[in-house]
Simulated assay, not measured.
Amino acid sequence: MIDIDGVAVTVEPGETIAAVLLRQDQPWSRQTPVSQSPRAPYCMMGVCFECLAEVDGTRSVQTCMKPVQDGMRVMRQIGRPRICG
C-alpha cells in the first residue's frame, strides 16, 4: 500500500510508481510550471521526465524508474521541477 496525495492505493510488488499512477482516475504525475497542464508518465524508461513527482519528500523523482515500496508517500508535483541539486 502506498499513499498518493493522501489516498491509500493498493500496489503490486515490483511495479513502478508511474504504473500505479497510470491506473488512477487522474493519471497525471505533475503540472507544467507555466500553464499548469497535467502531464502523465509517457516513455516509461527515464528519458522524457514527464513522470516527475514528489516521493517521500524528495521532488523531481522519475516515477517510471522507482519501484514501489510499502508505505511510500507520493505527491503529484506542482510547479517548476528541480532535476539537479
Rank of each mutant, 00 (worst) to 15 (best):
G79E: 05
K66Q: 14
M72I: 03
M75S: 04
R39A: 14
I78S: 00
I83Q: 01
V74D: 11
C64Y: 03
R76H: 12
P41T: 12
C51H: 13
A53N: 10
M75N: 03
M65F: 03
R82I: 12
P81T: 09
T58Q: 13
R80C: 05
G79T: 05
F49N: 13
A40W: 02
G46L: 07
M65P: 01
S37I: 06
V47H: 06
P41K: 08
S60N: 13
C64E: 08
S37C: 04
R59L: 14
V55K: 08
T58E: 15
C84F: 15
Q62S: 05
L52A: 09
C84V: 14
Q69T: 15
P81W: 09
G46K: 05
L52M: 14
Y42T: 04
P41I: 08
R76I: 10
E54T: 14
M72H: 00
C84I: 12
R39Y: 15
M45E: 04
C48P: 05
P38C: 01
Q36T: 01
T63S: 12
V47Y: 03
P41Y: 11
P67G: 04
Q62E: 10
G57H: 10
V74N: 11
C43D: 02
T63K: 08
C48G: 09
T63R: 08
S60D: 13
C84Q: 10
P81A: 07
L52I: 10
A40L: 01
Q77P: 04
M44A: 00
M72T: 01
G57E: 09
Q36N: 09
S60I: 12
D56K: 02
Q77L: 09
F49D: 12
T58D: 07
S37P: 00
S60L: 15
P38T: 03
I78C: 00
K66S: 04
C48S: 05
V55T: 05
M75R: 12
M75Y: 00
P41E: 10
A40Y: 03
M45W: 07
P38I: 00
R76M: 13
V61L: 07
R82D: 12
M44F: 05
G57D: 08
V47L: 03
L52Y: 02
M45A: 06
T58F: 11
E54R: 07
D56I: 04
Q69W: 12
V68I: 13
I83W: 01
E50V: 13
P81I: 08
S37Y: 09
P41M: 13
P67F: 00
R80L: 14
R59Q: 15
R39H: 15
L52T: 13
G71K: 02
R80D: 10
E54K: 06
M44C: 00
V47A: 11
R73I: 11
T58N: 04
M65G: 00
R59T: 15
C43I: 05
R73P: 00
G71A: 03
D56W: 02
T63L: 06
A40H: 02
T58G: 02
Q77W: 05
C43S: 02
L52E: 03
A40E: 04
D56H: 04
L52Q: 11
M75G: 00
P81N: 11
P81S: 04
V68H: 07
F49H: 15
F49G: 10
M65A: 05
M72Q: 01
D56C: 08
E54S: 06
C51M: 10
S60G: 15
